[in-house]
Design a protein around this nucleic acid. Sequence first.
DNA 1: TAATGATCATCT
DNA 2: AGATGATCATTA
Length: 229
Amino acid sequence: MQTPHPHPEPPQSLEQLMARANSLAGYNLGQLGEIAGLGIPGHLRREKGWMGMLLETLLGAKAGSKPEPDFPHLGVELKTLPVDRHGKPLESTFVAVAPAEGWQGVTWETSHVRQKLACVLWIPILAERQLAPAERVVATPLLWRPNPVQEQALRQDWEELVEQLALGHFDEISAHKGQVLQLRPKAANGRVKVQARNAEGQLVAVQPKGFYLRAHFTRQLLAEAFSLV
DNA sequence: TAATGATCATCT
DNA sequence: AGATGATCATTA
């Protein structure tokens, strides 16, 4: 096992990326934050993306806000996943923004959701809320591609949700829709608005939304990967 | 402003 | 407890 490097270059191969990811398992975030030379917050109330940014740094992902996979050369998206002591996800997982307009002609095959989920490096982190960030522990990583059953479930939800968006129901869709994929607010706050067209074609100001994976979906994909089957 | 990284806070 | 709706930091 290698020792984590503070600021590695982007990995040149999938094998190198996985070797790095495996080398982080077992460390707590206090140790890793120190290795990376980052400040370690006492809580994540104001730094909700801190765990994700830390893992990006240690794995050599491109920092910043580019609309690209975290490892473009490898086609791999990095996602940290907070889990409880049993490995059960504690939160849903943000996937992609849902544009308020322009859905006509968009298909699942070319969708950002499918592209983002084509190949994901999941880094589960024991992150129960009672644990301070420094005490949270990195678990065994999982390189995942949707199997046919999973992709079909994602596709079905995506098509149902996008149909509603295309029909002008952006502002009416709640998080209750979708078995594995849902739409939820995704904005700095409730005053942020974007323009959408309603069912009558009128321009209306709506709160931005994003696609999220339900926790039971990520729970199942972890279970399938790590169980005996 | 819009994209990245997500978790928080509250209600049921 | 679990899920929904709301929110926070940073960067280009």
